[in-house]
Amino acid sequence: MHLRPVQFVDAPFAYPDGAVARLAGGMQWFAAYEVIDGGAKRVLPVADIPALGGRAAALHARFTAPRPPLMLGERTLRFDQPVVAAILNMTPDSFSDGGTHHDDPAAAAAAGMTMAGAGAALIDVGGESTRPGAAQVWEEDEAKRVVPVIERLATAGALVSIDTRKALVMERALAAGAAIVNDVSALLWDKRAVEIVAHAACPVIIMHSPDPEKGGHGSGGYRNVATDVFDWLETRVDALVAAGIERTKIIVDPGIGFGKSLHDNLALINALAMFHGLGCPVMLGASRKRLIGALSNEAPVTERLGGSVALALKGADAGVQLLRVHDVAETVQALRIWRGLRDRAFVG
Rank of each mutant, 00 (worst) to 15 (best):
T76M: 10
G257L: 07
A11F: 01
W232Y: 15
V84K: 04
G99S: 01
P82Y: 02
I196E: 11
P203H: 06
M27L: 15
P12V: 14
H199S: 13
A239V: 00
P5T: 13
M274D: 06
I269A: 01
A345G: 14
R336S: 03
R75N: 14
A109H: 06
A47E: 14
Y15W: 15
S219I: 15
P69Y: 05
V147C: 12
E330Y: 02
G177K: 08
G54R: 12
D228P: 04
R165H: 15
A65R: 14
M274Q: 13
T155D: 14
G307Y: 08
L122N: 04
A24P: 12
L168M: 15
R4F: 06
R67D: 04
N270H: 15
V241L: 05
A286T: 12
R67P: 00
Y33C: 13
S219Y: 03
E303P: 01
Q7K: 13
M170R: 01
V125N: 10
T91A: 04
V181K: 05
L266K: 03
R288E: 00
S261D: 04
P50F: 08
R223P: 00
P69R: 00
Q333K: 09
A116F: 01
G99Q: 10
I337V: 15
A58Q: 08
A156F: 12
M113L: 15
A329I: 01
A201V: 11
V84H: 00
E303S: 15
A176G: 13
T227Q: 05
G259V: 07
M207E: 04
A109R: 02
A243S: 14
L335G: 00
A116S: 12
F275H: 06
F30S: 03
L233S: 11
R152S: 14
E246N: 10
G218L: 09
D97V: 07
G26E: 13
N182P: 12
E213P: 00
A267S: 13
A51D: 08
S296I: 09
F230R: 08
A345E: 15
I123W: 03
R152Y: 08
A154T: 11
L284F: 02
G319C: 05
P254D: 09
D48W: 02
L311Y: 09
D124A: 09
A312R: 03
V84Q: 04
F275I: 09
L311N: 06
G279I: 10
R342D: 07
V225K: 07
R344H: 05
R192G: 08
E139Y: 10
A107E: 00
C280A: 01
N224K: 08
S185G: 06
G315L: 10
R62D: 10
G221H: 01
F230S: 12
N265D: 15
N89K: 02
S261I: 12
P210H: 10
G117C: 12
V6S: 06
V20H: 07
I256H: 03
T248I: 11
A58E: 12
A193P: 07
A173R: 09
S261K: 13
L44A: 10
D141S: 14
L188P: 00
V237T: 00
G293C: 06
R236W: 03
V282C: 10
V204S: 09
H326W: 11
S296G: 00
G119Q: 08
A312G: 04
N89Y: 05
L313V: 11
F63T: 09
